[in-house]
Design a protein around this nucleic acid. Structure first.
Length: 210
DNA sequence: ACATTAAGTGATT
DNA sequence: AATCACTTAATGT
């Protein structure tokens, strides 16, 4: 575990902190599509991502979803940061996009290390900053981009976090992630295919223009 | 062969 | 961009 740790966090944290993380943290594996954090879960530990990708979703009263952003290796979740500080429940859902390895740290430690490790403190603050940026980007995408642009961005993002230009999903799943209807997605995908940006198959899509 | 699920299409709001 | 109604195509039993 400590070699995986140094691979992903070695350039951020001093050896001493890496050691402490590997001593205290527990390694957990999630397979693709497994739910890591559910809405209203109490969060008792914070995750550090070693490999894979995690999709962060918001859900409305009707159970309709909306993808906010993806976390990749070296990232942590801003929601848990705020949850670990207070006693709030999670307001988002985290689903493993690919097979994912992460380290869980007890929340007491994360507060404690803020005082003891400078590198930890800057990591936490930077993470907040990055997540905030990503959230703003998500807002911009929803507010200012048309559906076809949103869709293409979604496909590119998904291809990137999966390290694969062939995406295995259905039009229905995409429409749920983007909070729209399947028919709209089918039509826009068809349009993107005509523009030679993607190629459509049953249950999969190949992204051409990366 | 039949049922189910994914995807395509025209028309309407 | 959403919804409806319907068709076509692929896949599972």
């Amino acid at each position: 575990m400590s070699n995986k740790l140094s691979d992903n966090f070695g350039y951020l944290f001093e050896d001493e902190l890496i050691n402490e993380i590997s001593k205290i943290g527990t390694l957990k594996l999630f397979s693709s599509n497994e739910i890591i954090i559910e809405i209203d879960d109490y969060i008792k530990s914070m995750p550090l991502l070693l490999s894979g990708a995690v999709k962060i979703l918001r859900e409305d009263e009707k159970g309709e979803e909306l993808v906010l952003y993806y976390l990749e290796k070296g990232d942590t979740c801003a929601m848990t940061l705020s949850c670990c500080m207070g006693q709030t429940k999670s307001k988002i859902r985290a689903v493993a996009e690919t097979d994912t390895e992460l380290i869980l740290l007890p929340k007491e430690k994360m507060a404690e290390w803020l005082g003891t490790y400078k590198s930890w403190q800057s990591y936490i603050l930077q993470s907040y900053h990055f997540r905030m940026d990503e959230l703003l980007e998500a807002v911009d995408t929803i507010a200012f981009l048309k559906m076809d642009e949103r869709l293409f961005k979604y496909l590119k993002d998904k291809a990137m976090v999966n390290n694969n230009d062939i995406l295995t999903t259905t039009h229905k799943e995409i429409s749920e992630d983007l909070h729209t209807s399947r028919v709209v997605i089918s039509r826009l995908l068809k349009k993107l295919e005509n523009e030679s940006k993607i190629k459509l198959y049953r249950n999969s899509i190949k992204v051409l223009a990366l």
